[in-house]
Write a protein that binds this DNA or RNA. Structure first.
Length: 209
DNA sequence: CCCCAGGCGTCCA
DNA sequence: TGGACGCATGGG
């Protein structure tokens, strides 16, 4: 399995190149994007992030002090905007409360993760995205693309859950933050291009693994 | 018109 | 514990 996962990675890098994720101007912006992109097209998330930036509100203290209605208006393009406004505000209040991302970064990975997971609206993928892409912690992010790509290529069972997929990567790959970042990003990029429809695509870079 | 998108919480058996 | 459902916009 080690060899197979490394071969997949190699093929993806050869085909797409390194991805240099997450696309954001700051660590906090990564967190905002992670919450806003829940079951949502990234293009819509970009619009919401732009509207926050345009109002100079890409700041946890400011968002923590805003009315959820005001937040909701600004992030509307990202969809589910009423619940996301609450989730975002709640996250920011908590973040300000603990003293910011630098305090969170100082915690041991498992502690930081379980604290994030206590927040309403922060689930497994969102927590791991924040840990990996905002804080640079070595944890592998699993998402719908990961599942789709791996099942389509028979690398995991249909009923594999989040933890088992995460363990598959983390126990078979070197514990390398840059590798984890790039690998997950590449799976997303691949999923967007090639694993949409049922039958295995021709000219998919993973064909035959 | 349809379907889908870088999930999550709640409810119910 | 696991499956259905609501949440909502914008693009194809």
């Amino acid at each position: 399995m080690k060899d197979k996962l490394l071969e997949v990675y190699e093929r993806l890098v050869d085909f797409f190149g390194h991805q240099h994720w997450w696309p954001a101007e700051s660590e906090f912006e990564v967190c905002v994007g992670a919450i806003l992109t829940q079951n949502t097209n990234w293009k819509n998330v970009e619009k919401a992030i732009e509207s926050l930036k345009k109002s100079n509100l890409m700041d946890p203290k400011l968002i923590a002090s805003m009315d959820t209605e005001r937040i909701a208006e600004l992030i509307k393009p990202s969809g589910f905007y009423r619940q996301k406004a609450k989730r975002l505000k709640n996250f920011c209040e908590w973040l300000v409360d603990i003293g910011g991302l630098d305090r969170l970064r100082e915690l041991p990975l498992e502690i930081a993760r379980s604290e994030l997971l206590k927040l309403k609206g922060i689930g497994l993928e969102t927590a791991d995205s924040i840990l990996l892409y905002a804080l640079g912690k070595p944890i592998f992010v699993v998402d719908a693309y990961t599942y789709r790509v791996l099942t389509r290529h028979s690398l995991i069972d249909e009923d594999a859950d989040y933890h088992s997929i995460q363990e598959l990567f983390m126990s078979n790959l070197p514990n390398d933050v840059e590798l984890f970042k790039d690998y997950h990003a590449l799976l997303v990029v691949l999923g967007k291009r090639f694993c949409k429809k049922k039958p295995l695509c021709e000219n998919c870079p993973l064909k035959g693994v």
